[in-house]
């Protein structure tokens, strides 16, 4: 993966596959640590499966015996002075966290978060996403439940809504990255 935002897109899709109705994505940046957390209320995993899930030869896929999403993110985190952890309970959901040392020479760029969030909403307009990005003291949140409440039965995947959400995210992104 070229940037962490692509890993976020990839890992959050696991939550969609797990049948989640709410996926919380949190990116927290401090000078010492960058943490990405994807938390869902999907079907969860057994302790035995969690123990094997960072193994590239573990997957729920039936067409092939390779699943690289989690192992790739873990490798990237470990290469940049961090690691990955997964907590899961069957019937409750799963929380995946990866953390990094932002000062590490192998720290991957965070990349285009905006694009990943929009791709998730476009791909699963019926699922709710709660996205929070914080840098030090500054942060913002996008909660699709609020958007859905206003839009009623209009799909969030409509191009007009996605365009609005894109502008909303980029305004908020620049307000926390370049505060005036």
């Amino acid at each position: 993966m070229k940037e962490l935002s692509l890993n976020i897109l990839d890992i959050a899709k696991n939550s969609v596959t797990a049948g989640a109705t709410l996926v919380e994505i949190t990116v927290t940046e401090t000078p010492a640590r960058l943490t990405i957390t994807v938390s869902d209320n999907g079907c969860g995993m057994t302790p035995e499966f969690v123990a094997r899930v960072t193994d590239p030869f573990t997957t729920t896929r039936t067409t092939r015996k390779v699943g690289l999403g989690i192992p790739l993110l873990q490798m990237e985190a470990q290469m940049a002075g961090g690691d990955l952890s997964i907590e899961s309970e069957v019937g409750k959901g799963t929380t995946t966290s990866a953390w990094f040392d932002p000062g590490h020479i192998d720290m991957p760029p965070l990349g285009d978060l905006n694009s990943s969030i929009l791709t998730l909403i476009q791909g699963s307009p019926d699922i709710d996403f709660l996205f929070t990005h914080s840098i030090g003291e500054r942060s913002y949140t996008l909660d699709t439940r609020e958007i859905r409440e206003i839009m009623g039965d209009i799909s969030l995947a409509e191009p007009e809504i996605l365009a609005w959400l894109g502008d909303y995210i980029s305004e908020n992104e620049s307000s926390i990255t370049n505060p005036t």
Partner: peptide
């Protein structure tokens, strides 16, 4: 999927 995203599907 992971393969598509890594190759530049987004």
């Amino acid at each position: 999927a992971t393969c598509g995203i890594a190759a530049g599907a987004r």
